[in-house]
Amino acid sequence: MRRAGLAAAGLAVLAALAACGAPDGSQERDRAEEPARTEGATPGAGATVPVEADGSWSLRLADVSEGPAWPLPAGSPERFGLGTAAGAGRIAPWDRDVRPDGTGLPPGSGRAADGERVWIAKCSACHGPTGTEGPNDRLVGREPREGFPFGAEPRAGPRTVGNYWPYATTLFDYITRAMPQNVPGSLTADETYAVIAWILARNEIVADDVVMDASTLAAVRMPAAGRFVPDDRRGGPEVR
C-alpha cells in the first residue's frame, strides 16, 4: 500500500513492540534451554496489537512473546549487508494492496451499468448471472436483513458480500489479486470499480447510478461493519 506519510497518530504502540526496531544480538538467549515460555505466565498476557486505525479495538496475542525467539549468533554484525536496496520504482508495481481507508486505491471510476457488462463477460460463469447462482461463491444476498445469525445458525445461508463482508475496499484488493480466476489481475481499474459498483448495487448497498471511485468506494459502509471482534481465546482452562 502506498502512503504519502506514516500516520502514527492515535496508535498506542505498546512496550512489547517498542523494541521492534532493533533487536539486539547481545540479548542472546537460548530459548531451547528455557522451560516452556508460557510457564508461570498469566494466561492472556502477551502482545497487544492495534487493529482499527481509530484505536477502537485491539488484539491481544496470548501466545506471542517479546521476541526474538531466534537470537542472532554472538558476534553478528549490526547489519549483514545482504539484499539490494529497493527504490520506489521497484516497489510500486508490487505494492497494490488496498486498505479500508482507501489507501492504495488507484485512479479510475465505473458505474454499475458498465459493471454489468464486465460481470456477464468475466464473472458470471463462476458466480452466476445475478451473483446468486454459483457454482462458486455467492456474492449477492442481503438475507437475513436483520441480525448476524451465522454463529448461532448452522443453516443461516451463504455468507455474501451483502451480509458478511465488513469492508468494501476488500473487493478491490481481492479482485486485483485473484480475479477472474482464469486470468487473475487482468481487469483495468475502471472495470474493477465498475464491477464493484454492480456487486454493491445488487446487494442494495449503493444506488444503481453511483460513480464508484477511490473516494466513493472508501466511503461505503457495509452492513456487516462492526460485527467483527478480536479473538478472545487465551489458552488456559476456559474453552472459547
Binding site: 500500500m1 506514516l6 500516520a7 502514527a8 496508535l11 492495534p50 487493529v51 482499527e52 486505525a53 488484539l59 496475542l61 496470548a62 501466545d63 494492496d97 488496498v98 486498505r99 479500508p100 441480525g147 448476524f148 445469525p149 451465522f150 454463529g151 448461532a152 455468507r159 458480500v161 458478511y164 463482508w165 465488513p166 469492508y167 475496499t169 476488500t170 484488493d173 481481492y174 485473484a178 460485527r227 467483527f228 471482534v229 478480536p230 479473538d231 478472545d232 481465546r233 489458552g235
Partner: peptide
C-alpha cells in the same frame, strides 16, 4: 501500522459466534 483486511481475514477464516459477532484474527 494496521491490518489490510484482505478477503482471507474477513470473508474467510473468521469465526462467527452465537452472539451475533464474528471473531477475527483467530490465529492460534
Amino acid at each position: 501500522d494496521r491490518p489490510t483486511m484482505t478477503r482471507e481475514e474477513t470473508s474467510r477464516y473468521t469465526d462467527p459466534l452465537a452472539d451475533g459477532t464474528a471473531r477475527q484474527f483467530s490465529f492460534a
